[in-house]
Design a protein around this nucleic acid. Sequence first.
DNA 1: ATTATTTCTTGATTTACATCAAGGTATTGA
DNA 2: TCAATACCTTGATGTAAATCAAGAAATAAT
Lengths: 197, 197
Amino acid sequence: MLNDFFNKLSKNILLTEADKVIFSQHVVVKKLRKRQYLLHEGEICKHVAFVNSGMLRSYLVDEKSNEHIIQFAPEGWFISDLYSFITEDASNLNIEAIESSELVLVSRASHIYLEKAVPEFFKFNYLQYRGAYIALQKRLTSTFTLSAEEKYINLLNIYPDIMQRVPQHMIASYLGLTAETLSRVRKKLTKKKSEHS
Amino acid sequence: MLNDFFNKLSKNILLTEADKVIFSQHVVVKKLRKRQYLLHEGEICKHVAFVNSGMLRSYLVDEKSNEHIIQFAPEGWFISDLYSFITEDASNLNIEAIESSELVLVSRASHIYLEKAVPEFFKFNYLQYRGAYIALQKRLTSTFTLSAEEKYINLLNIYPDIMQRVPQHMIASYLGLTAETLSRVRKKLTKKKSEHS
DNA sequence: ATTATTTCTTGATTTACATCAAGGTATTGA
DNA sequence: TCAATACCTTGATGTAAATCAAGAAATAAT
């Protein structure tokens, strides 16, 4: 049940069997069917979720009720609203399963406990946050510097696997484009490709 | 010399006098005049800099040679290219003093050493990265969801102090706007204000 | 003091992308 | 298996912000 979770942690830190026992006492496994929610905006985010299988997305709905996808989380990834999780303020985000998924949930109290009880977990989170910050900075610069077409190509290069499993309008939403614009970009790209041969 | 630096750390962690001695042996104080650089793109980022006084900016230059400001760092802030600092890959960023500044520099080797020798420093960085990630996510969502005018107002609310010290074209660059657009936004806002009275 | 540089403004024009609208194609579900 | 959603495409039109251009103000430098 927790194997994938432990393997993920073990990629960056050293977990003893004793550590694993501690973890197993402080996490919960949960299943979500496609289109079920882990978090609705307005709620306090109660968990960090590790995705054992399936895929989730977190997104925000703006004034004009357009959705903006913050993150995709396929198997092997974590997802949460870290801001709400830490501050216990109401979240602006929604977290939804876009495939039927199995999750390992860590509550706020458990998260704090585990960082103390398993110092390597503290280190793991240090690395996660640092990496997430760097990745997000790249995303920000790509939204500033690239055209719609370049953003799309760039994204395909970074996450080819994820982009194959996700509907186009969600890719558009992640990139800050409309579905129509992305459709036209794709058309142009296939035309380019065929001319190339 | 290092008082501001220690005060900053002490806001989040507990530093002993012994810790301070260790720090003082592993950091370097450096001054930059206005328009001098801490980092040029293509170089490996060798330091994390704490700003004792003055202000720096980090920015990236795109294909069309437009500048995009990633970060402003006035006194009390840290600045670096974390990606390059960690991976030792060449940086895409430039870091420049926009006022004459005094910095406390921590090299990569010292950073690693200090995190081991002063566990509280490791914790400090954990908190820094986590906070930076959350702040950056807010910045990303504001670029997705807000109009030019809203972005500007939002930024003034978050960093009123910094925005008063920085030329407008740099504010524009930070927001992903042109200087002309920001100038027009500001004109419209002063008009609104005068109508209000 | 006055030249030079940087910064800001304003107008005219262009452009990338959004919006609106409507039909087509899958996929899902009783 | 047929209706209902969800998803994708295409065209026509609109628009916020970029670009181009040129001058005015402010700051800095000699």
